[in-house]
Amino acid sequence: MNKMISVREINSLFKDGDQILVGGFGISGTPLTVLDELSTSEHKGFTIISNNLGDHGQGLHKLFIAGQIVKAIGSFFSINREAVMAWSRGELEIDLLPQGTLAEAIRCGGAGIGGFYTKTAVGTELAKGKEEKIIDGEKYIFEKALKGDVAIIKAKVADTLGNLTYHTTARNFNPMMATAGKIVIAEVDEIVEVGELDPETIVTPHAYVDYIIQSNYIKEGTDYLVK
């Protein structure tokens, strides 16, 4: 099966109202090429699961500006000023989760686990309405697993089968998201032949990856620029 697709094929993989997992912490490890293309589509009503909503006009920020996002599930949206304002006006629904809870919920979603109990957020506003359980004398709250209709992730290198390696802190949420999407699209800097990646260095096995797309971006200093 050929997993390689072109930018023009991206938008046909989505539908209105999809719940989409989007990799990245800040802009590091964000599938910018896929998001650029998706922001030009007519699709709308997306629920986004991502640590934040892009930054500096890049990444998910473009989908937000295009009015395609109705709900965001993540841990840190304070830097996205326009998102904060939209939330204040009631135009954007937000589910705030502690960062570790977000990561574990996605890990569970991809691993066939329905949810988990954590001590994180016990006694805080973010525990409101969540089931409590005492385990070995300590209070925990239940957090449900998270999954997506589509996961869009960023890796450094893919082989043509879809095995992936990552680069430094651009790994972040991407490996878990690769396991938790019904459709998984991996944007990568480099595509190599099968056998070229050392099996010991592969972080995401190809079983999780449906589509591979070559990134349009290069790094320059602290920026990601279109080639």
Binding site: S78, N80, A83, V84, I94, L96, Q99, G100, T101, E125
Partner: peptide, 11 residues
Amino acid sequence: QPILGVGGAMD
């Protein structure tokens, strides 16, 4: 103020 960020503090 809008409360839209928690990050890793609670963990």
